Simulated assay, not measured.
Amino acid sequence: MLRNNTRGYGWLSIIFHWTSVVIIIGMFTVGWWMVDLDYYHPWYTDAPHYHKSVGLILIALTLVRLLWKLSQPSPHAQGKKWQKKSAKITHIFLYLLIFSLFVSGYLISTADDRGIDVFNWFKFGSLGRLFADQEDFSGMVHEYVAYVLIALSSVHGLAALKHHFIDNDNTLVRMLTTKQQKEQK
């Protein structure tokens, strides 16, 4: 089942979700590792190139994901009223953090008026230097937003595990398979 319904997520939403999870964890890990590379390290220029390229692919995926999300019904949330509200707020913040990472990463990478090569396929243009100390300020924002995104994503994942193992509901299962969705029809 490709599309969502009020009982569960379709395969496309599930693929968007887990692809984003893998990319975000990978980007965080690579970002954390590459900031300590010295000039003579063989990955000194390649790691940032791949990090920027994957970051631009992630933002494109996130935009398509949001458009898909807006065109689909949302499965009914499970849990208490405060849990449903918390989940909604958490999802909004996760998207805002991803977009903040994109903007801050873009401002770091284009402060010298050079565009960003995306896997050497095409160049994403630069707006140049927009304010003083752009790369330093944006770098600080990028780092702290990445930490907050990983922390909030961890809370999100723990909440899904809590739903599964403590509440015994199908919140987690709905993001792993469409099987529950088909059985309930």
Rank of each mutant, 00 (worst) to 15 (best):
Y144A: 08
D46S: 13
S20V: 11
S154H: 06
L158I: 14
Q184Y: 05
I98L: 11
A132D: 08
R129P: 01
S71R: 09
H142A: 03
P73W: 06
A47V: 06
Y106L: 02
L176K: 06
H41R: 05
W32N: 14
G26I: 15
S71F: 12
Y9G: 00
Y144K: 07
Q78I: 15
L176G: 00
S154L: 07
L37N: 03
I89K: 01
I23W: 03
T62G: 04
V35M: 15
D167A: 07
D117K: 08
V145A: 15
Q184E: 12
R3V: 07
M175D: 09
Q181V: 07
S153T: 12
T19P: 02
A146C: 06
R65K: 11
R65W: 03
W82I: 10
K69L: 08
R174N: 14
I59G: 02
I92W: 09
Q180H: 03
D112C: 11
R114W: 01
N170M: 04
S126V: 04
A60S: 15
K52M: 14
Y44F: 15
D133W: 09
S86F: 09
Q72K: 14
T178G: 03
L12D: 07
V141F: 11
A87V: 10
Q134R: 06
P48K: 04
S126I: 04
R129S: 05
I14F: 09
K123Y: 10
T178N: 13
D169C: 02
I92V: 13
K182C: 05
A159I: 14
Q184A: 14
D112S: 07
K182A: 11
I14R: 08
K123E: 13
V21K: 10
Y39V: 11
G79M: 03
A132Y: 01
V173S: 04
A132G: 07
V145N: 01
H91L: 03
T171F: 05
L66H: 10
W121N: 03
F119S: 12
A151P: 01
A87E: 01
W68R: 01
Q83T: 12
A111E: 03
D36T: 12
L12R: 12
L158E: 03
W33S: 02
D113N: 14
L67P: 03
Y44G: 09
N170I: 06
G139T: 12
I98Y: 01
S104A: 11
H163A: 00
D167L: 12
N5A: 08
L149N: 00
I57A: 07
V30M: 13
K85R: 13
I108K: 10
M34T: 10
F119D: 08
M140R: 15
L63A: 13
G115E: 08
V22E: 02
F28C: 12
H156N: 07
L152I: 06
T110W: 00
G125S: 09
H91R: 11
G31S: 12
G125V: 08
F137T: 11
W43Q: 05
T19Q: 11
V21F: 13
L152S: 05
S138H: 00
D117T: 05
M1T: 08
